[in-house]
């Protein structure tokens, strides 16, 4: 382009390189900002990835290196087959337990809770959006359960869930069960599902539904053949969001499980705490734990795009 300017020094060609230089600087600046932001967000992930391949001697090494000097996959194999590392400490913290049961628990609890939460939230949102069920403040009131620090519910729920004094208060026998966590997760996320899907349903013009009704369709038919396909992308986005919430939930999983219903986030916490410092396996499990979310996000990516552009449905 600079060449063009030299060989044909007309007004336009003189102006062009100057403009493109400005554009070039702009592109460079944008790129720098993007890289800067990417580093801020990605560095912890890269760090975790790095540690997950480091031998114990490098975990706390100073100065730290991003690339492991002696990379190994022992941290990953340890997760599934811990053997008997460092004896008593590992047994005490739970690090000696293989991670498969926790993964299976999480892979059941999170998806099931998510699906029910989204279904219930969607139907509730439809009722609120179209029929104003419960009045104008209903959607707001559904948020009241989110207005307290969640841990405030821990003790009352614990009373419900467990047999406090078996002969007097039998309880629901949901302590340390998958069903217990599933119910809890549905209860805590359904308000989010309602609010998110309500936004998408509100975006579907009433006239489209009325047209279907005048064509003879029942409300249920309208809901499933007209409204649902139109908010499909929104439902995908909501599903992903709620799946992330339930997949990574730690506090209640920690309080309400002990042995049988332990989830991945709880298992992650077993490797490093007041005692025990299995940073390598912990990082390895962190990487593995993020995979389902990454995969789910990738699979529904196409729907996410349509979901977010469907805010622009034509009236």
């Amino acid at each position: 382009m600079a060449e063009t300017a030299v060989t044909t020094p007309t007004v336009t060609s003189v102006a062009r390189p100057r403009l493109s230089a400005r554009a070039w600087v702009g592109t460079l600046l944008r790129l720098l900002v993007a890289v800067g932001i990417a580093i801020v967000f990605l560095l912890p992930v890269l760090w975790m990835l790095s540690i997950s391949f480091k031998p114990p001697t490098e975990w706390l090494e100073y100065p730290p290196t991003l690339i492991p000097k002696e990379p190994l996959i022992g941290n990953y194999t340890f997760l599934f087959n811990p053997g008997n590392p460092e004896g008593a400490i590992a047994v005490m913290t739970g690090a000696a337990e293989p991670v498969m049961p926790a993964f299976i628990n999480s892979l059941i609890i999170a998806p099931v809770a998510t699906v029910f939460s989204v279904i219930i939230g969607f139907l509730a949102a439809y009722a609120v959006s179209r029929f104003r069920v419960g009045g104008n403040f209903m959607p707001f009131f559904t948020l009241t359960t989110r207005m307290f620090p969640p841990v405030a519910f821990a003790v009352p729920l614990l009373v419900y869930y467990s047999a406090v004094i078996p002969s007097v208060i039998p309880g629901l026998r949901l302590y340390d069960t998958r069903l217990g966590l599933i119910l809890m997760y549905i209860a805590f996320t359904v308000a989010f599902a309602l609010w998110m899907t309500k936004g998408f349903i509100d975006g579907v013009p009433r006239h489209i539904e009325e047209a279907a009704i005048l064509d003879g369709a029942s409300r249920w038919r309208v809901l499933f053949t007209i409204t649902l396909p139109l908010v499909r992308g929104g439902l995908a986005a909501t599903t992903l969001f709620i799946f992330i919430l339930t997949w990574t939930e730690f506090l209640f999983a920690l309080i309400f499980t002990q042995r049988y219903a332990i989830t991945v986030p709880v298992q992650v916490s077993h490797y490093a705490g007041a005692i025990g410092r299995f940073y390598g396996p912990q990082a390895a499990l962190g990487i593995l734990a993020s995979l389902p979310v990454v995969i789910a996000g990738y699979l529904i990516q196409r729907h996410l795009v349509t979901g977010f552009t469907f805010g622009l449905i034509r009236e």
Binding site: A211, A212, I213, L214
Partner: peptide, 30 residues
């Protein structure tokens, strides 16, 4: 649904996610 009256909306209210064929066929399918 039971009045048997047709209605054309100001902004057409087509079923945007369907083909023209499915739009036209909707009432008959129902």
């Amino acid at each position: 649904q039971q009045r048997g009256l047709g209605f054309v909306f100001q902004n057409y209210a087509l079923f945007w996610h369907m083909t023209v064929f499915d739009n036209l066929a909707f009432g008959l399918k129902v």
